[in-house]
Each structure stands twice: as structure tokens, then as C-alpha cells.
Design a protein around this nucleic acid. Structure first.
Lengths: 195, 195, 195, 195
DNA sequence: CATGAATGAGACTTCATTCAT
DNA sequence: CATGAATGAAGTCTCATTCAT
């Protein structure tokens, strides 16, 4: 009980610190301080810093999927360009409301590409997100899985990619990009449903 | 004679080491060794490690734009779904042929989000790439700038995003995603040209 | 048990090394070796080398005041030129018996003029020494505080200054200077007590 | 001609930089920049950095003696406590008008205590200053050399010492100390002349 | 279980000095 | 004579990890 409690506290603290400071600056000392535990406890629960961050990825993945879940309720509506735009509001607003989340994700991306321990976690998590999005898109757009899956992949990377652009360059036309994305989706879905 | 010979060597070495090892592991010591110069020379030419990597970003940006340039020649062809797919082969093949390039880019993304010196360079470079892509797409797809620009933004992030997915997860259906991307583009462009 | 045992050892070692080698040559590596601890422990207890030396200053200041304290016992004696000379023997003998102490003090002086962290410590310590000397002189020479304080300031700097001269130049007539100092004090105190 | 010109420029630049930044921060690179010469030229004219600063000491010593010279003109006046105070204004105002000069001197003091090359220069220079002051005091106060010399030593160190105190601690009562110094001198000189 | 003092490797950076031009 | 690119040693500091308590 208490064991897992502290363990979770550490993961949550690592999550926060990593998002704010990035991998380099996220020292175990600071994480321990943020979690309110002794420094040595981190290496007691986690064999290494990398393995701790592998756990952080899992936590992030859960949050990601949950954040999209409420789209599910819209599954029964008829799909107009209007309702598409509305649905896209969810990922779109994330970059504005929670920029450190995007920072965290890109931090993990970079980390995963060179760190075996993190890499494994990342692979699982990415697949999980894709599947989650696949189901959601299947429901919303009334598409069979084989059509929803590649579309999910594309949207998955577009959400993060556009969010990153907005964060990195204030001059970037985030609105316009999402409008065009909606238009692309609209015409693509219409083409699919026609055939 | 060979003006700034060693300076260029350092940038090239930093480029390679950063792509292979990531920012953390890319020590100035190793970069110096890779460049075949004394460690101190790095800080002779570059005030700090960060500023060195800012130069690396610039070099990467140039290479990126050049890699897309040959698409320009296709501008006069009529746009079919077939020729679209062909054009998309260029960014698509990058993730396969030069995976460390994508790693480098994601490394820079993460770095740029928390490092002021890099951030500035990154902002400029991202805008440059967008504009470059905007012109290319305008020519290929016969679109006015205001339509080409948001499309360029989307494609820009999709290219990197899908490449990253492929690198991170061998099980990812890279082919299918690009097929769907081509189909989306096709139907969107047709819709645009109809109106 | 031995609370902050190693911390004290580090301060003592820093004290010694600083006095012997001067600030530049007093590397943390050597201090650690002299203290018998790992190099990293220095920055575990002290945020920076400067802040370590700020502690050294405090230690030096205490020792300085203690070294003068036994003069207090002479407060009740009648003040003759003879007994004045005797009292002056205390600071006078310091330059001979413990030259590295004077070296340390001058090192700190120079350091304090350009280093903010040390400067703050130095300011406090100088004021403390002046006040200590003020009280001592007040007692010995039966002077009120407003007369004792400026006299203390002068004596304070003369002690260090003459010690430094002796250390720097063996040809310097240290004895003669102290004799004259005693004579000056004698005539000044007599003038004061007459009025 | 031009040779010595550049040599002098380097010494002057070293003088300035040392006074402003202190020995540690006074890099040869910066000195070269301040002197407007190539970096390599410094080690062309001076075997080492230390030997350069030995030259700086000599330059400082000359300036020091010159700054006191105009007191000579007052030699014929009758010595009152008033005129004593006036004469003391010269060294007293130095700490206020040219604080970096005092900083320089203390820098040189510390440097001289641990650096053989500088030490030799310092010894010569200190003796020179003492002799200069001895002559001045002899003239002003109509004292024979054997009485003037120890007094000169004391004044020499008091001037620097009080100036340093003022610089280090704004709360220090500089005025009061100089007033007391004048009073001490006055009563001491009167005692001497009586006998 | 939990702590936090302690470690030691290694990172970035500075700098006096050298030497080919 | 003069330059400044280049060197390499050394410095301070950070940090994940260990271990006695």
C-alpha cells in the first residue's frame, strides 16, 4: 500500500519534472525532492533512471488515450465537416492548454530512439495509441478497421506534429493547418463513403 | 587556403555524433575525436556546445530542403494519384535509407524546446522548411500560396511523424500509412480543383 | 556521531590549502585530497568553490578574534609605553609565527573585492573584527566607544599591513615600525587623557 | 620604437584589466584585445603571464609615487593639525576616486605572496614606495630619516588598509578613521618636536 | 524498508602557451 | 616581427548510483 504509494509518487514527480525540464535537467535528486522521498529510494524502486522513465511513458500513454476517450460519445452523430472540426478541437486545444505535455512527448520520442529500455516502452505505447485511435476513428467515421488504422496513424502524428510547430514557432498558422486538416479529412471520408 | 576547414569538420562531426548518440551522449570530447581536432578547438569556434548544435541545425535544414528540391522538376506533369505516390516516395524513402537523419531531427526538436540558443535556430529553420515546401507544393499541385501553405505544414509534420513511427516500431505499417496519405491528398486536391 | 565530520574537515583543508597556495592554485581536487574525501563531496556540502571559501573566512575571523582575546586580561593595568609595547607583541608576533595566516588574509582580501559571494562574508567578518578590537581597546586604554572605534580601525589595518610588509620584504624594519607605532599610540592616548 | 610602443600598450592594458577583473579573470586573450594586439604577441614580449604582471607592478609603483609627489611643495609650510589633514586628503581621496587602483594593489599583494616572479618585483616596489614616502614625510614634518622611515611604513600600510576597508564595507567610517589618524600624527609629531 | 551522505567518473569550458605562416 | 589558429592540460561542477546505518 504505502510502498506502491511512494512508487507512484515518484513516477508522477518524474513525469512533471521531465515535462518541465527535459531529460538532461531532470536529475534524480530533483525528482526525489518533487516526490517528497529520499534520493536513494528512486534506485531502490527503479533499477535505473532510464527504467523510471519507461514507467513514465506508460503513465503518459494512459493519459493520452483517456484524453481522447470522450470522442467516443460522438460516434453516433452524422459526420459533417462541422462536426469533424469539433472533434478535432480536442487534440488541437492540447497544444494550447498543456504545452508541457507536448514537450514531454517529444522528450520521450528522442529518448526512446537511443535508449533501449525506453525504446521498448515507447514501442508498446505508440502501438497502443494507434489502436486506440483506430477504434475511435472507426466509430466516429464508420470505417472498417483496415481503413481506420492508417488514418489513425496519420492523425496521430499530425496532432503531435502540429502541436510541436505551434509551440516552437509562434508565427506558425496553427488554425489554418487544422482547418485544412479538417477539409482533407472531409473530402477523404466522402470519397471513401462514396465508393 | 582551406578556410575554416576545421570549423566545418567540427560541424560535420557534431552532426554525425548527434544523430548517432543523441544530445546527452554526444560529448564534446567525442565530437572532437570524430572531427580529428583538439577538444579545446570546439570552444574556440563555438562559445558553447549549444551554439555548436545551433549550427548543426542550420546545416540540417539546408540538406532537408535540398533533398526535396528535385520534386520541382515534376511540376509540369499532370497530377494523378499515381504521380502523387511517386512524389511521396522521396520523403518516404528517407526513413528507410537514412534513419539517423530522422533521429537527428527528433533530437533537435526535443533540444529546441528547452534550450533557448537552439530554440531560436530551430524556429528559423522550421519556418524555412515550411516555406520551401509551400513553394514546392504550389508548383506541383498548382495551388495558390494560401492553400499550399497549410497543406505544406501538414505534410511537413506527417513526413517526420511517420518516419519516426517506422523507426520506433518495426511493426508499424509504414506502407499503408503512405498509401492512405496519397489517397487523402488525391481526394483533397480534386475537391479543391473542382471548386 | 561525528556530525558533519567531513564537512569540517573540508573547511579545515580549504583553510590550509588556501593559505599555502592561494586562491588560484587551491584546486578543489587538492582540497579534497587534503581533507581525505572524494572530490564530489566538496560540491555536495558547498554549492561552489566560492561559497566554501566564504566559510573559510568565517573560520578565520573566529580565530582572529580569539587570538586577541587574552589582551582582555590586561584591561586593569595602568597603561605605560612599556605595557603598550607588550600588548602589541600579540599581533606583532603573528607575522613571524604564522606567516601563512597573513597570506590567507590577503588572499581573502583580494578575493573579496571581485567575488560577490566572498565579498558578503568578508564585509561581515571585517565589521566583526573591528567591533571586537573596539571593545578590547576600549577596555585596555579606558576609552569610550566613539574614540576606541576609529583607533581600532587603524590598528586593525596596521597589524595586517605591517605583517604583510615583513613577509614580502625581509629587509623591512618590522621592529622599528612597531616601536614607532607604540610611541604614536602612547602620545595619542596621553593627549586624549589629558583633555 | 614601434616595438616598445606595443610593449607599453600591453602593459597598460594588463594594468587596466587586472584592476578591473582580478588576476584570475584577467586572461591574456582579453589583455591582448584591450591592447589591440594579437594574442600571440604577449608571449612574444613576455616569457609568461606572471612576468607581464611583474612589469605591471613597476608601472603601478611609478604612478603611486607620482601621485604623492605634489605633497612635496607643502614642505615649507608650518605643520598644524589643519595642514596635516589637508595633506592626508591625497591618499584619502584615492579610495573614492579610483577604487580599482586599490583593487589592483591588493591583487598584486596576493599575487606577490605566492608567485616568485611577481614577488621579486613586489619587494623592490614596496621598498621604493617606502623610501619615497620617507623622503616626503621627512620634508613635510621636518624629521630625520631614522624617524621618518618607520612612520612612512605605518602610513603606507594605513593608506591602503583604510582604503580597502572603505571599498569592502560601505558601513565603515572612513572619515572618522582619517580624523583619528590625523590626531595621532599630530600628537606624535608634537611629542617628537618637543624632545 | 528507507535514508542521505558519499563516491568517482565524466561533462563542459577556460586558458596560457606554441608554432606554422 | 607579428599573427591567430590550434593545443591539451586542468579546473569546477553535476549526477546516477551505492551502501552503512
Amino acid at each position: 500500500m504505502t510502498e506502491n504509494d511512494k512508487r507512484e509518487k515518484i513516477i508522477a514527480a518524474a513525469y512533471q519534472v521531465l515535462a518541465e525540464k527535459g531529460y538532461d535537467q531532470a536529475s534524480t535528486k530533483e525528482i526525489a525532492r518533487a516526490a517528497g522521498v529520499a534520493q536513494g529510494l528512486i534506485n531502490y524502486y527503479f533499477p535505473s533512471k532510464d527504467l523510471l522513465f519507461a514507467e513514465v511513458i506508460r503513465a503518459e500513454s494512459e493519459r493520452y488515450c483517456e484524453s481522447l476517450s470522450f470522442l467516443q460519445s460522438k460516434g453516433r452523430e452524422k459526420l459533417s465537416e462541422e462536426s469533424l472540426k469539433e472533434a478535432l478541437e480536442v487534440p488541437k486545444s492540447r497544444a494550447v492548454n498543456d504545452p508541457s505535455w507536448i514537450r514531454l512527448r517529444y522528450e520521450l520520442f528522442a529518448l526512446g530512439m537511443r535508449n533501449p529500455a525506453v525504446s521498448e516502452s515507447l514501442k508498446t505505447t505508440l502501438a497502443g495509441k494507434r489502436e486506440h485511435l483506430t477504434r475511435l476513428i472507426g466509430e466516429i467515421a464508420h470505417l472498417p478497421e483496415e481503413q481506420a488504422r492508417p488514418l489513425a496513424s496519420i492523425l496521430h502524428v499530425v496532432f503531435d506534429g502540429l502541436g510541436f510547430q505551434k509551440l516552437s514557432d509562434p508565427a506558425f498558422d496553427y488554425e489554418g493547418a487544422y482547418d485544412t486538416l479538417a477539409a482533407m479529412l472531409d473530402s477523404y471520408l466522402k470519397t471513401l463513403h462514396k465508393s
